[in-house]
Write a protein that binds this DNA or RNA. Structure first.
Length: 555
RNA sequence: GGUCUGUUGGUGAAGCGGUUAACACAUCACCCUCUCAAGGUGACACUCACGGGUUCAAACCCCGUACAGACUACCA
């Protein structure tokens, strides 16, 4: 009997040379300090990361870093159809854009670092086969020759009789094939998959102690699930999870909640091999409400904001995105940050118990708000340097100007920044240009002047000329404004707005109408930061030029 | 059909037997103000999906129901 089983196993896996024990020795337990967490990010090489996956990777990375553990990248290319050229490099780049650099695993399309490789599943074929062979030898796995039609038939019968669907018990035809029959079929070159001969009992219960959700009870798995696929002989996710996460000595499996239901399978697999079971944390999905008002999983197809590249292009600072991800990841993070506004993210301890488990709506406006606050706290020099990096990639014209007028640019960014409550108008690096373009002549060639309150052209001319010739004073902000008020009194505009509100009919307008005109003529916009600061930086000569340019444009 | 998960305001959520149901984002109003951006003050859940039950007392415990989602593939 044993010889027969061996013959079958050898036939099924002719290329296996090592045993499970051999691999156990090759990949010993990691020598890490007490409590260190080993996690992994295991995407398919589709070339880019989507926000939901990024969140998973981010959390796994954070959990590992907090405990001096290991975070590694494993590529799951068992579904060859989905693979894309340079897919791994694309993923690595996306991760790197958010400061996630794996400690081990793939580092480009072909190479990896670390002692637990290969880190790409298509190169681990022999390992999976050794494990599957072990199971066959122990009578816990068998070849199944059912084709798609036969499987469909089984399902139809089950549906008809309202029975549980799946390949199990008496429905598992090939389970009862004799060894001789199996050997004969294989020798006859019939295609087969390798199925688990599940020892489970559907009436018995097992418990998942989920780190995020607490205890969840399931019936034991009794499905004879596929371990090795027929055509490419690659493992299924379930089997790869067992082999890889055990051999790579992963301690914590962090994955989306769509995996909860397959826990009984995974638990059974670990039990059969008597391997130490990893801990599981099932994360909530990232959702969005689409135009029809339906709440659904964020989709990389339909939602541009789902692609991680979007944030890179948009120029949302990495730290802002990380803060936002952390607020989704751990519900106590916001509170912590309020109490520790100046502490870096690294000081916050990731907590499995605080993982949010209900599907979170992805809130772009909240992200923008975080980004805004973050940017308002940077120094002008930091803004300059970070913007330089961003524009070099995405806005060459602006990049060149920044290089050419370095000190001037820094002064611009410094307007209303070096104060207790700094301005908060930059939401991202890409938004900055729109807030400062008018400070550069090169970007002020054909300004689109906004409307002003004072409509009469002659009046506008009079005000600007009078102002430039008699009242322009840039020594300091107080005298600057005093002069403007003086001019207002002289020209019939209220210098005091409260007075104006009491008796508007006594005046042609008020001081804000006058500054509004000056503002638009200098910047083309009605909304800008502090006018005095702008004028101070522009200097008298440019002010004159711009007044002239403006007056020309309205005539 | 089966198994499992989730449901507190526009959003993220705290709370886990006694609270005015925190906090943050968004929205609105007023104040401040040369325009903005901020900042300040205030408004915003007649109530925690619904229906029962336990209890002196329930968003919190129990039981049903509804709705949403996941899995039930030789996809992950």
């Amino acid at each position: 009997m044993n010889d027969k089983l061996k013959e079958l196993a050898d036939l099924m896996f002719p290329n296996v040379t090592k045993t499970v024990e051999d691999y156990e020795k090759m990949y010993p337990e990691r020598n890490l300090e007490e409590g260190a967490v080993v996690t992994r990010f295991a995407p398919s090489p589709t070339g880019f990361v989507h926000m939901g996956s990024l969140l998973t990777a981010f959390e796994a990375h954070k959990a590992a870093k907090d405990t001096n553990g290991v975070f590694y990248l494993r590529i799951e290319d068992t579904d060859q159809k989905r693979s894309v050229e340079n897919g791994i490099v694309g993923i690595l780049n996306d991760l790197k854009n958010f400061d996630i650099v794996p400690d081990e695993g793939m580092i480009d399309e072909e190479n990896s670092i670390g002692n637990y490789g290969p880190y790409i599943q298509s190169e681990r074929m022999e390992i999976y086969h050794a494990f599957a062979k072990d199971l066959v030898l122990r009578g816990l796995a068998y070849p199944c020759f059912c084709n798609a039609e036969e499987l469909d038939e089984i399902r139809e019968i089950q549906e008809l009789n309202k029975e549980r669907i799946g390949y199990y018990g008496s429905f598992a035809k090939c389970r009862s094939l004799s060894i001789d029959e199996a050997i004969a079929k294989i020798k006859n070159k019939e295609d087969f998959v390798v199925r688990l001969k599940s020892p489970g009992n559907f009436n018995k219960k097992i418990i998942l102690n989920d780190l995020a959700r607490g205890d969840i009870e399931f019936p034991e798995n009794d499905l004879d699930i596929v371990l090795i696929k027929s055509t490419d002989k690659l493992p299924t996710y379930h089997f790869a999870h067992l082999v890889d996460d055990h051999l790579m000595r992963t301690t914590h499996i962090m994955r989306g909640e769509e995996w909860i239901a397959s826990f009984p399978i995974h638990d059974q697999l670990f039990s059969i091999f008597n391997f130490k079971k990893p801990k599981y944390a099932h994360l909530g999905l990232v959702m969005k409400v689409d135009d029809t008002g339906v709440r659904r999983k964020l989709s990389k197809r339909k939602d541009p904001e789902a692609s991680v590249e979007f944030y890179h292009k948009e120029g949302i600072p990495i730290d802002a995105v990380k803060s936002y991800l952390m607020t989704i990841a751990n519900s106590n993070f916001e509170e912590w940050q309020d109490k520790n506004p100046d502490s870096p993210l690294a000081d916050f301890k990731y907590d499995f118990k605080k993982i949010s488990i209900s599907g979170t709506l992805f809130d772009v406006s909240k992200l923008f708000n975080i980004s805004k606050n973050y940017l308002s706290k940077r120094t002008a020099k930091e803004i300059y340097e970070e913007l330089l990096i961003w524009t070099e990639e995405f806005d060459q014209e602006f990049y060149n100007l920044l290089l050419k007028y370095k000190d001037y640019a820094i002064s611009i960014f410094n307007i209303e920044r070096n104060i207790e409550k700094p301005r908060k108008d930059y939401t991202s690096y890409s938004s900055i240009r729109n807030f400062v373009f008018y400070m550069f002549d090169e970007l002020f060639m054909n300004p689109n002047y906004e409307e002003v309150k004072i409509k009469d052209k002659k009046e506008r001319e009079l005000i600007l000329n009078t102002y430039y010739n008699e009242y322009l004073d840039l020594t300091d902000k107080d005298s600057w404004f005093l002069k403007i008020k003086e001019m207002c009194d002289k020209l019939g505009y209220a210098s005091n707005i409260k007075e104006y509100k009491k008796n508007p009919e006594n005046y042609k307008g008020n001081v804000s109408d006058v500054t509004g005109l000056i503002r638009v003529s200098l910047t083309s916009k009605t909304n800008t930061p502090d006018l005095f600061n702008i004028m101070e930086l522009l200097g008298k000569e440019k002010i004159k030029e711009r007044f002239t340019k403006y007056l020309k444009s309205i005539n």
